[in-house]
């Protein structure tokens, strides 16, 4: 793991620091090159299984289909499915294809990206409510300036090339606006 010091900003480089601390008295000579920072990488390695319901969802993504599952009590469709309804606690009984068109329910302009797949900043991360679903999927916006994104905006996913499709959320490269009228915010209540 490498760190580019030129891109690093730290408290100690601010004129006064974020707050002042007393300088301790030191009983031994520490020389003229004290340690001021440390690179401390932390890493956790998992053998991850998403469970059967989310496995079905990921296999659907490999076919460019967004598959939710329906709560038997409320009839709402949850995506990605976890096998049980988060509202009733009952097992979901029916697989339902949702989207691919969706509506932005919330978004954030990101100025400090991290991770190997982060787009160039500033970019917009957002929650996308696929048509027919009760809850939103996380993703990023493309093909639009960051300051033109709106809640209620209609969007569609942009998929990776067919040859690159896998059982992964990364099949959706990003979402882009489509030429449809915005959905009024009142209609998005409860679906954030």
């Amino acid at each position: 793991m490498s760190i580019d010091p030129s891109e690093d900003r730290s408290v100690s480089t601010l004129p006064e620091g974020l707050w002042t601390q007393p300088v301790p008295s030191v009983p031994v000579d520490l020389g003229d090159d004290p340690v001021q920072r440390q690179v401390v990488p932390a890493s956790m390695r998992y053998d991850y299984s998403p469970g059967l319901a989310t496995s079905r969802f990921l296999r659907g993504l490999a076919e460019k289909r967004i598959l939710g599952e329906r709560c038997p009590e409320t009839g709402e469709v949850y995506v990605p499915p976890r096998g049980v309804s988060p509202v009733s606690g009952l097992r979901t009984t029916e697989q339902v294809e949702v989207g691919p068109k969706a509506t932005i329910t919330s978004f954030c302009v990101v100025h400090i990206g991290f991770g190997v797949n982060a787009p160039p900043t500033p970019f917009v991360s957002a929650l996308f409510l696929p048509d027919g679903a009760a809850v939103s999927l996380y993703g990023t916006m493309g093909e639009i300036a960051h300051d033109e994104v709106r809640i209620g905006m209609r969007v569609e996913p942009v998929w990776v090339d067919d040859a690159d499709l896998t059982t992964s959320m990364e099949n959706i490269r990003y979402w882009r606006p489509i030429d449809e009228p915005d959905v009024p915010a009142e209609q998005l209540k409860g679906h954030m």
């Binding site: 730290s10 601390q21 301790p24 030191v26 000579d29 520490l30 001021q36 690179v39 299984s49």
Partner: peptide
């Protein structure tokens, strides 16, 4: 039917040590 995949979560922390921990690790170097 169950998918599995390796998942690695990494944080490249680059920490300032501050006046006390900084003195502690500097002294360790000595």
């Amino acid at each position: 039917e169950l998918l599995r995949a390796p998942l690695v979560i990494e944080y490249p922390f680059n920490r300032t040590t501050g006046p006390v921990v900084g003195a502690f690790v500097t002294a360790l170097r000595n």
